[in-house]
């Protein structure tokens, strides 16, 4: 029961009010700065951004907001030539890249957790991109043509992909042409998996060995189930990383609409783009959760998930009460 420590001296029923009131007060004081911040910069801003999305926003001496219903969204999907395309490219990119990054990180973590020499050096190397991989740097590298693996023949891949429909072959081609930079996204995930692998209990492996399990069996029956919650965590982390940073065409489109008076349609239109985009990101997160959640061990899983995300598990308490 690792959770019994989490509550500040649970108040007894008789001394209830005074003590609990003080606890409430102190608790609120601690989180107060954030409550103000989140109200202004997140909740209020969300409401504002939603109202922008449903309005025509003009920057003529001050901000004029005229409600116009779903007009921005209609324009977005009927007469915009770039956004729907960029959005579907982004979604397909996520579908392809997230599994690759997560699987790659797991393989790297497994290799880095085995008994090899220079382990520390390898870890430092593979974490390096987290420090240096940023949009402008990756743009420069792409422009110099060093984003893809040097030995891979691009023309050959193009030949193989020629038989596929265009909407599918293009993301795959993108994948190969910037494979290094995509794999560069795996630094944090590798470390998360390594931390997870350390939790695989040596006793359990020893016991399995004595029972005659092979290394292969131990890997599938013990190691993989232990790191399974990390897979979800890493998938979520990867989706967020890919959707907020680096070379993201959609973010650029949103900013263009905000600031570029020549091509932009204003804040309202930008807000509509941002809401559509966030919806896609939310769907991707939901999809990851649906696929990767552990269906069998609901309670254990729920605890882990909540703990991982920094939540607080309430199940036990209800049982005690």
């Amino acid at each position: 029961m690792s959770h019994k420590n989490t509550r500040a001296g649970a108040p007894k029923a008789k001394t209830f009010t005074k003590r609990r009131l003080r606890e409430w007060g102190t608790g609120w004081l601690f989180v107060l700065p954030w409550v103000i911040g989140v109200s202004v910069f997140f909740l209020y801003a969300m409401a504002q951004s939603l109202s922008y999305a449903l309005s025509d926003v003009r920057l003529t001496n001050g901000l004029t907001v005229t409600y116009q219903g779903f007009q921005n969204f209609i324009t977005l999907f009927t007469s915009d030539t770039t956004f729907p395309l960029a959005l579907s490219d982004f979604a397909l990119g996520l579908l392809l890249q997230v599994p690759i990054i997560v699987a790659f990180s797991l393989i790297m973590a497994l290799m880095l957790s085995s008994k090899i020499k220079c382990r520390a050096m390898f870890r430092v190397l593979f974490f390096l991109p987290v420090i240096i991989a940023t949009g402008p740097v990756m743009d420069e590298l792409t422009q110099q043509g060093v984003a893809s693996v040097p030995m891979v023949n691009q023309a050959a891949i193009q030949g193989v992909l020629a038989s596929l429909p265009n909407w599918l072959s293009e993301p795959i081609l993108n994948l190969f042409s910037s494979l290094i930079l995509i794999l560069w996204n795996s630094g944090v995930q590798i470390l998360i998996f390594i931390a997870g692998l350390q939790k695989v209990s040596p006793d359990m492996r020893e016991a399995a060995r004595i029972d005659g399990a092979s290394g292969w069996e131990i890997f599938w029956k013990i190691t993989i189930p232990t790191v399974k919650p990390m897979v979800l965590l890493n998938a979520v982390y990867t989706i967020i990383a890919l959707s907020t940073g680096g070379q993201n065409a959609i973010i650029q489109l949103i900013y263009n609409s905000m600031f570029d008076s020549a091509v932009g349609r204003g804040y309202g239109y930008a807000a509509a783009m941002a809401w559509t985009y966030s919806l896609v990101v939310a769907l991707a997160l939901l999809l990851a959760w649906l696929i990767l959640r552990d269906r069998n061990k609901k309670v254990v899983y729920e605890k882990r998930r909540v703990a991982m995300k920094g939540g607080y598990y309430h199940g036990d308490e209800k049982k005690q009460a």
């Binding site: 504002q48 973010i251 985009y277």
Partner: peptide, 11 residues
Amino acid sequence: LLPAQLTIMPN
């Protein structure tokens, strides 16, 4: 979880 671009215009 949500992208910061959602709130960037009002902010």
